[in-house]
Computed example of a mutant assay.
Amino acid sequence: MTPGMCRRLLLVEDDPGNRMTLTMLLEDEGFTVVTADSCALAARLLNDAPRYDAVLLDSRLGDGDGRSLIPLVRARLPGAKLVLVTGWLNEEALCHAVDAVFQKGTHFDELLACLCRLLSPAPG
């Protein structure tokens, strides 16, 4: 699979440097990236008739707990893949609510491999 294959992602990240870097790297791989820097903006984007193949959700945002958006993502985007991006080590408890937990500081190629695996068509 070509990594991006015109896949549309919502990146929810409040750190400007991380947001910019991830956006550029993902766009270089062919993804279309829409960004939100807060829970409030992410909620608005999710409620505005979204079409995203995946959501990369920072667990800690400046205006709240990014994990609080998990039910909204699941309700508005039932077919989308949800990746929780975290700097915390204790997020394994949320593994049942998301498709993957990605540790901040891990190399981008591992995130890309995770996204490609999640977004690959099911065999059959």
Rank of each mutant, 00 (worst) to 15 (best):
V83I: 15
D48E: 15
P121L: 10
D63A: 01
A122R: 13
G62H: 10
D65M: 05
D109I: 09
R74H: 03
A40Q: 12
M5T: 02
A93D: 14
G62C: 04
A97M: 10
P78H: 03
L118C: 12
L112A: 10
I70G: 04
L46W: 01
L56K: 03
P71M: 00
L118M: 11
R76V: 02
L41Q: 15
Y52V: 00
A113N: 13
C39F: 02
D15P: 00
N90G: 10
E91M: 13
L111P: 13
A75Q: 15
A42M: 01
V55H: 11
L89Y: 04
R44M: 07
E27V: 04
T35S: 13
P71Y: 02
V98H: 08
H96S: 15
L9D: 03
V101W: 02
V55E: 06
D65S: 09
N18R: 08
L57N: 10
G124C: 09
T23W: 02
A97W: 01
V98T: 10
D15I: 07
L46N: 07
P121T: 12
A113T: 12
P123G: 01
H107P: 07
R76K: 14
G87M: 07
E110W: 00
D99Q: 06
R44E: 15
F108L: 05
L25Y: 09
A49G: 10
E13Y: 05
L10D: 09
G66A: 05
P71R: 00
L115M: 09
M20L: 14
C116V: 15
L10H: 09
L84F: 07
N18H: 10
L89N: 11
V12L: 06
L9R: 06
P121E: 13
Q103C: 09
E91N: 12
C6F: 08
L118N: 12
R117D: 14
E110I: 03
E13M: 05
V83S: 11
V101P: 06
T21Q: 02
C116F: 01
V85N: 02
L112M: 11
S68F: 06
F102Y: 15
E92M: 03
C116T: 14
A97F: 00
R51G: 05
E110H: 12
M24H: 13
P78C: 04
A80W: 05
L94C: 13
D28A: 11
L72M: 14
G66F: 04
L26H: 01
A97P: 00
A42P: 01
G62E: 14
C95L: 14
S120T: 14
R76P: 07
G66P: 09
C116E: 15
R44P: 00
D37P: 03
L69R: 12
G17D: 09
R44F: 00
S59T: 11
V33W: 08
E110D: 12
V73E: 00
S68I: 02
A80P: 07
V34C: 02
T2E: 13
D53H: 15
A80Q: 06
C95V: 04
P50Y: 05
G17Y: 04
E13H: 04
L72N: 08
P3T: 08
